[in-house]
Amino acid sequence: METFLGLFRYEFFQNAFLASLFAAISCGIIGAYIVARRIVFISGGITHASFGGVGLAYYLGLNPILGAAVFGVFSALGIQYLSDKGNVREDSAIAIWWSLGMALGIIFVALTPGYAPNLMSFLFGNIVIVSHYDLLWMGVLAIFTIGFFILFFHTILFIAFDSEFAKANKLPVRLFNSILISLVALTIVLNIKVVGIILVISLLTIPQVTASLFTKDFKKMIAGSVIFGFIGSFNGLILSYYLDIPSGASIILALVLIYLIMWIIKRGINWRVKVKLEV
C-alpha cells in the first residue's frame, strides 16, 4: 500500500483533491442557503431537470456540462417564477419537471447514434475523472460564490429570512433570489462530475445538517458546512482509492459517518454540561 502523501504525486489525485476542495466550498455555501431557505426539494428538481440538458448536449455533440448548465439555470428560474406567481402547487410542478428532465435525458442519449456515453458517471459521479476544464469552472464558481457572499452577506441573509420586510425596504428581492437560485443550479451542475446527479443533493445538505448541530448562525453554518464538506469529500476520496469503490458513494458514506460522529460528540458535550449543572 502506498503512503498517503505519495498519492499526491499522481495528477489524477491532485485534480481530485482540488475538486473536493472546490466542491466543499461551493456546496458548503450554497447548501447552507438551500437548507436555511428550505428549498431542498426545489434543488432536487433542478438537479434532475439538468439531466435533460446532458442528454440534449450529447445528441447535439456539445459539452454535456454546458447543456446541463443551461437546463439547470432555466428550470431554476422557471420554478422561481412559478412560486413568485404563487398560483401553482409548487411541489407537484417540481415533481413533473424533475421526472420530465430525466426522461428527456434518457431519450436524447438513446437517440444519439454510435458512441454511447458513460451515463453511470453522470448518475453516480467519479471524482478521479474530473477534467482540467471542469476543474477550472469549479474553481471559478467557488471563488465567485465566496466573493458574492462576502460582499452581500447581510442582504442575502435579510432577504432569505424575511423577504416581505426586505421588499418594504426596497431591497432587490427578485434580483437576489434569481441570482441565488441560478447559483444553486450552477453549483449542482458543476458538482455532478464529483458525486453524480443522484447524490449531489447530499453534498448540499449533509455538511449543513452536521454544522447546524453546533450553530444556528447562518455565517457559522456556512463555515462549518465548508469544513465538514471538505473533510467528508477528501476522506471519501481516500476511501474510494484504497477500497476501490465508486467515489460518489464513498464520499456520501464519509459525510454521513462524520455526521454520526459529530452527533455523538454533541451528545457527549450536552451530557457533560448536564452533569456539571446537576453537581
Binding site: A32, L151, F152, H154, T155, D162, L171, P172, K216
Partner: peptide, 25 residues
Amino acid sequence: IDFKFPITVFDVVRSGFVPGKSLMV
C-alpha cells in the same frame, strides 16, 4: 416568519438599519 431560520436576535434587530444602505451592507 420561519422561526427555524438560522439567524441571531442581534442580526434580526440590525436588519432594521437596512433602509438607506447600499447592498453591501
